[in-house]
């Protein structure tokens, strides 16, 4: 159940985010089932404006990650605040594969490493990133492991058939 403070904060956030990124779709989601209160989805733009808004409200950037949807990437940012009224905001930004997103590392230093990781696994070249190199994979690797076309074993398909 949401407390009064949380409800108030949610309303404020919704309005402010809608004001700063008018093209985005913002909706409330069921915390019990999904683990986040507010869902923000847009296409191509808005990640830096959201980050600035969140930083001004002292939200903590929990993680940056990406999901490979074959035709496009979905960059996922999760924000959470330390204060009493805990709100988790899920920011999804769809970007086409040939048009990389902007970095948020100017707003949150943590994102320097988090985006390096995303680059390392998906090959997403964040624009204006200060230090975009491999981080976990070898420096001379020529693959991006978490892309869907990389390393899907046939054994898994067999296991799946066996179980079904």
């Amino acid at each position: 159940m949401l407390t009064e403070g949380q409800k108030k904060l949610l309303e404020e956030l919704k309005n402010n985010l809608a004001k700063s990124v008018p093209e985005a779709k913002i909706s409330q989601s069921d915390y019990v089932l999904t683990g986040y209160h507010l869902e923000f989805s847009s296409s191509k733009v808005g990640m830096r404006r959201v980050a600035k808004e969140m930083r001004s409200r002292r939200f903590n950037l929990e993680t940056v990650t990406a999901v490979d949807f074959i035709d496009s990437f979905e960059i996922v940012y999760l924000y959470f605040n330390y204060n009493q009224d805990n709100i988790r905001v899920m920011v999804r930004i769809r970007v086409p594969k040939d048009e990389p997103p902007f970095t948020v590392s100017a707003v949150y230093s943590e994102a320097i490493w988090l985006e390096r990781e995303v680059y390392d696994f998906f090959g997403i070249q964040f624009k204006e990133h200060p230090d975009l190199r491999r981080i976990l994979n070898p420096d001379d690797a020529d693959y991006f492991p978490l892309l869907k076309n990389f390393g899907k074993t046939t054994i898994t398909g067999e296991i799946d058939d066996m179980l079904c």
Partner: peptide
């Protein structure tokens, strides 16, 4: 999809799971 956060001995861990309705996770972060 869902995000579950919990406190390990070192800090807040989170599992972000995307499911496409099969037995195999589509993405697990």
């Amino acid at each position: 999809d869902c995000y579950h956060s919990f406190e390990s001995a070192r800090g807040a861990v989170g599992y972000y799971i995307v499911s496409d309705g099969t037995r195999i996770p589509y993405r697990l972060k």
